[in-house]
Design a protein around this nucleic acid. Sequence first.
DNA 1: TAGGATAAGTGGTATATACCAATTATACAT
DNA 2: ATGTATAATTGGTATATACCACTTATCCTA
Lengths: 252, 252
Amino acid sequence: MIKKMKKISKNSPLPLYYQLKELLFELIKEGRLKTGDRLPAARKLAEYQDVSRMTVKKAVDELVNNGYLVRKQGSGTFVAELNKEYEISPIASFSEEMKKKGLSFKTELIKFDIINDKNAAEKLNIEAEDRIYHLQRLRIIDDLPFLLENTYLPIKDFPSLEKENLQESSLFKIMKERYGCILSRAEAEIEPVIINKDTAEKMGIKKQVLGLYLEQFTYSSDNKILEYTSAYYRNDSYKFKLKFKLNNLEEV
Amino acid sequence: MIKKMKKISKNSPLPLYYQLKELLFELIKEGRLKTGDRLPAARKLAEYQDVSRMTVKKAVDELVNNGYLVRKQGSGTFVAELNKEYEISPIASFSEEMKKKGLSFKTELIKFDIINDKNAAEKLNIEAEDRIYHLQRLRIIDDLPFLLENTYLPIKDFPSLEKENLQESSLFKIMKERYGCILSRAEAEIEPVIINKDTAEKMGIKKQVLGLYLEQFTYSSDNKILEYTSAYYRNDSYKFKLKFKLNNLEEV
DNA sequence: TAGGATAAGTGGTATATACCAATTATACAT
DNA sequence: ATGTATAATTGGTATATACCACTTATCCTA
C-alpha cells in the first residue's frame, strides 16, 4: 500500500468515491505517485480504505477519464504521463508543457479595476449598469511573455475580491475555493490577428506580429457565465496546442 | 417506455451497458428522442431491458459525460441541447453548428493519391519509404468553402482504401467501422497564417486573407498515429469555436 | 533448460439490494 | 382555493457478490 496513505472519512458529507478520488489526485499532484507507478490493486485499496471495490472503481474511473491514470486489464492501474492526455484549456496546456520542460511559469497582474462597461456587461450577460472587475494579466514563461489577457467578472458573483488574493492564488482556484463556484464548461473562439503595437509592446515585442486572439467564456454548472476573457497569444515563440479526447460516438 | 424500443442482446459479445448506450445514442441521433425529452426512469428502463439498474446507470453515465444527456436528481434524465456541450473536434463543431442553422454541410474530395513523402512519413512516425494515402478535401457549408485540408494515412494500416469509399462515408466512420480502429485522442496545433494565393483560390477567395492553420494528429488507443491532417481555415466568413469541459481537478 | 500448463492476480461487467437526497404528485385540512 | 403534510418517484451512493478476460508468476514436465 502507498506509504502513510490517508484514510477517507465515513462521516464526511462528501461521497466516499469522491474523497478517494481527491486523495489519489493529491498523491499524483504531490508527486508521491509518479508517472508509471502502479496503483495498489482495487481489491487491496478497497480493503485498506474499508470501502467496496466498486467504490474504488468509481473513484479511479474518474481519474482515468480525466487522463491522470491508465488502466491495463490483467496488469494494473498506472499513473499516466505528467502532461495530461486530455488538456484543452489553452493556458493549462501551456503551463503544463512548460513545467515539463523545467521552465518557470508566472502571471503578472497589470490591472485590477472596477469598471462599468456596456460591452463587457453584454458579454457577461448582465445588466449594463452592473459593476465589473477588470483584470489585465500577462502570462510569462521564463521571462518571456506569451499572452496578454483581459478578464471580466461580475462583482455581484464575487463580492470583495481583492488584488492581493489574485497575486497569491490562481483565479480559478479562488473562484472554486472561496466562492464555491462549480466550473463546468467553457467556450472559446479563436481568430488570427495582427497584434497591434500597444498590445505587442506590453508583451515586449517591438514589431507588429501575427498572433491569435481568443475569447473565452467560462460557465457554471447551472449555465451562468462566470467569467469572460479575451486574450492575445503571440505566435513567434510559442505554439498553441490542444489535446482532446475523441468520443467514440461522433462521426465527422 | 419509448415506442418500439429495441431490446439489447444478452448473447452479444458486447457489454450490456455498451449496447444500451449505443441504443440510446441512436435514438437521440435519429431524433426519436428530442431535446428536452425525458428518458424513462432508470428503474423502468432496467425492467424493460431486463438488466439491473446499475447497468442502465452506467450506460446513461457515459452519455451524460459526453454531454448528450442531463440528469436532474429527483426529476429525471433529459436529452441535452442538440449542440453538444463538449465538442472540441473543430470540424465536428462546425458541422453541428451549421446543421443546427439548417445549412448544408458537404465535403468535396479534390485529391486521392498514393504518395511517398518523407515529410508526411515523419509526421506519421513511419518509415520514409512507406507508402501513404494523400487526401485533399474541401469542406463546404452552403456552397461556401470554409477549409481546405490535407490528410495523410499510412497505407499499411488501411489497405485497399478506395476513392469511392470516401465519397460515400466519412473518414472517421470508415476507420472505425471498416478497419476497426479505436480513435482515442487527438492533438492539434493552431497558428495564424496569411493564406497563400493558391490555397485561397481553391476556397474561392480572390485576395490574400488572414486565416488559421491547423495540424492535427489522431491517435489510436494504443498511442499509434492513425492520421495526420493539416488544414487551412478561412476566417472571413466563419469563426473557429471550441467547447470544452472543465475538469474540476485542474487549477490554472 | 525450455516450453507449456496451471494458478494467482488484475481489471471488467453484471446483479440484487439498501438506503439517501431531491423533486414531484397526491391527499388532506383549513 | 390554498397551503401543507405525506407519499411516490427519481437519481445518487454504497455494499457484497459473482463470474469473465487478460496478464503475470509459478510450477511441472519433457
